[in-house]
């Protein structure tokens, strides 16, 4: 019985999956007790529940509450989003202060910065889409960042930005986390 809804719950955050699994199994037991066979009971259970992915998404992603309330996003995700957004802002900010930036510097800053910001926003959306999408997206961003660093010709162009702009990075991260806690990023950007 434990694996009956594994497919439907795959990729969901563990706590959400556990809570919903308990509900689904309780409902399934009810249908079985009422005389349904396994397949029919399963079908009715999922029909009774509604859009499971949508429900799980509402439980994990911040959405706009009519009175500016916030839904809980796990602290780890919030900080990860904040750090990536801050890092992206730091890279973009570097453009403003670089003396006579070369074409390569400009392009790598833009690519890395915009990709980081997009990744920060994407994390929120991907979280409700499941772990496989998150891993794939992170891998893609890592490839883009690696290529941009390589294109700059020095391989370590990304790291000096992060180290040299530490205060900006954390300030950007703090602002991002604060902003994300107050606004519906999902409705605005995704």
């Amino acid at each position: 019985m434990k694996t009956r809804f594994e497919g439907e719950l795959a990729g969901l955050p563990p706590e959400v999956a556990a809570e919903l699994e308990d509900h689904l199994l309780s409902r399934l037991e009810g249908h079985l007790a009422a005389g349904c066979d396994e397949a029919e009971a399963r079908r009715r259970t999922l029909e009774d529940f509604g859009d499971l992915r949508d429900v799980a998404g509402q439980m994990t992603v911040m959405t706009l509450d009519p009175v500016w309330g916030r839904r809980r996003v796990p602290r780890t995700v919030r900080w990860l989003v904040g750090v990536w957004a801050g890092f992206g802002l730091a890279c973009l900010g570097r453009l403003c202060t670089h003396v006579e930036p070369t074409y390569v510097t400009i392009s790598s800053c833009l690519v890395v910065g915009l990709t980081s910001c997009a990744m920060a926003l994407g994390l929120l959306r991907l979280r409700e889409m499941g772990r496989r999408w998150m891993v794939g997206y992170l891998a893609g961003v890592a490839v883009v960042m690696g290529l941009s660093a390589f294109a700059a010709g020095q391989g370590g162009v990304v790291l000096p930005f992060a180290v040299g702009w530490f205060p900006v990075l954390f300030l950007g991260a703090a602002v991002s986390v604060w902003v994300l806690n107050l606004r519906s990023v999902r409705e605005s950007f995704l």
Binding site: E19, L20, H23, R27, D48, F49, G50, D51, L52, D54, V55, Q58, M59, D65, G69, R70, R71, R72
Partner: peptide, 14 residues
């Protein structure tokens, strides 16, 4: 609908 309850519970918890 079974699913409508859980986002509400999480909101009330928040």
């Amino acid at each position: 609908t079974d699913g409508m309850l859980y986002p509400i519970l999480h909101r009330l918890e928040e």
